[in-house]
Amino acid sequence: MTDQKQAADFNEDEKKIIEDMITGDPEDMTIFGVSRRQFLKQLAVITGGFAAAQYIGPDELFAAPSVLAPGTIPINSIENGVNASFNVNGAPVALEVDSRMTLLDSLREKLQLTGTKKGCDHGQCGACTVIIDGNRVLSCLTLTACCQGKNVTTIEGLAKNNQLHPMQTAFIKHDGFQCGYCTPGQICSAVALMDEAKKGEASYLTENIREKPVSVQLSDDEIRERMSGNICRCGAYPNIIAAIKEVHSGKEAAQNWQFA
């Protein structure tokens, strides 16, 4: 069996789940990218397969506190409290936090947005990558207090308009992950990279750095260099490159499995 090609390969059930997961109705937009009510509805639709092939149920996924209106955040003995109002995945949040609290910990511990991962907590692995005002940054080295007025996009907010972000689809198709822990950071990073390439931003490998920035088609090594801030210990790098190349070029990339 050589050079097998296949599309993203969602079956009908999966397509339905994905469609249902993502809503165009702004009233259903929350920081989760999808509301609790809707998620429950979707899980009810699913009798088996894709999304159900996992341990967690909706109650665990949305463990209390799940409603995060301004002022309802439980506060226990906050020192040097700081107020910060900003948007997460298009929805406004207002937090009062300990001045020491990083955006990463606010997302994970206060907002229940656990898709953003803590891998090293020191800016050395990229697992906590989120997109703030269009730029990929590390949420572990960003104080929540510094997010005032900003727009934060996390992995939970990438899917829109009834479909997964093309980068998410490409990661599934090319198996761009194993344990899945670096994956949200990789995908956020890759999504932002596509914009950087469109703007013609340079990297250390750019040969003609003096040329006027124009939209660039990145070589494999250029993508590798620009994705080197996201460590994957399982070693999915070649698959991550394949996924990004496919989205970047707009051309379907072949998958290779070769049997002797």
Binding site: L138, A192, A202, I209, P213
Partner: peptide
Amino acid sequence: RENFPMLSQAILSGASAQIRN
């Protein structure tokens, strides 16, 4: 980039895209 390309290269050789942002 045009006048001091060495400065661009030096910055871009450091850390990661996220950190440089």
